[in-house]
Amino acid sequence: MGNHLQVAFDQVNLNYAGFDELALKKLTLHSEINKVGLIGPSHAGKSTLLYLLAGVLDQVIPTEKSGTIALDGQDLVNWLASKQIGLVLQDPASQLSGMADTVFDEIAFGLYNQGLEEAEIEKRVQAVAQKLDLEDFLDQAPTALSGGQIQRLAIASIIALKPDLLLLDDPTSQMDPLGRQHFFAWLKESDCPVIIASSEIDDLAEVCDQLWVLEDGELQMAGKPADIFMKFANDQEIAKPAAFLMGEKMGCKFDGHYPVTADELMKAAAYGNHD
């Protein structure tokens, strides 16, 4: 299930105008995007990569880049011209339109821009509000919401547009644990290609089929969560999921690696290989 998107980065170098240091260095990766988790310390280039894919980096700061990026065989710029990209920024309050009296209006904003009919807009807004636990807030002013609720509103406004690629930059930082749980549960079931930069390593391990590890602008590794965590098992800079650390401490493996999800941990403890 799900739409898979082929992405091809070839020798992408990028630096911000006026800075010598490269924000992205020789980024080369050919991959299918289903649910990709982007991890790494701050200043790694995660936000840069997301903004770059969304085609908005130059609006933030002028850049000099070389190399190519292709999505589904098309050059990024051409692909973006005919597709709907969704980008959720780190600071949720600043991405709201500022023109909406109510949460409903805020979510509907992009839908009016798409030229949809009132009935369709009503339907979509209700559906999206339900997915992100915002149905009780539809009549409230966006300014009355808490930080976590605003984050959910920002996400709702983007997913209502049914984007062809969803890019999320640390979208759950201000959410409470329950809110975060619901969000990742929704993300797992969604049928849209996603790249999410986040430090919630347990949730990423449960939801993502792929992790890209960035550090200092360089792609350290891209692969399945299990392979990544095994490779970086001794690296103190990379967080590991609780299941993995527990498996490591208890000495049980699943399928040749320490478990990365709750399910794998259970199976590993039950009949996995013990060290």
Partner: peptide
């Protein structure tokens, strides 16, 4: 905030010709 808003609005079709 102004910069973020500008990016977000653009991606949400702020100057879309088909706006209703």
């Amino acid at each position: 905030e102004a910069m973020n808003r500008s990016i977000s609005l653009q991606l949400r079709g702020f100057d879309s010709p088909v706006r209703r």
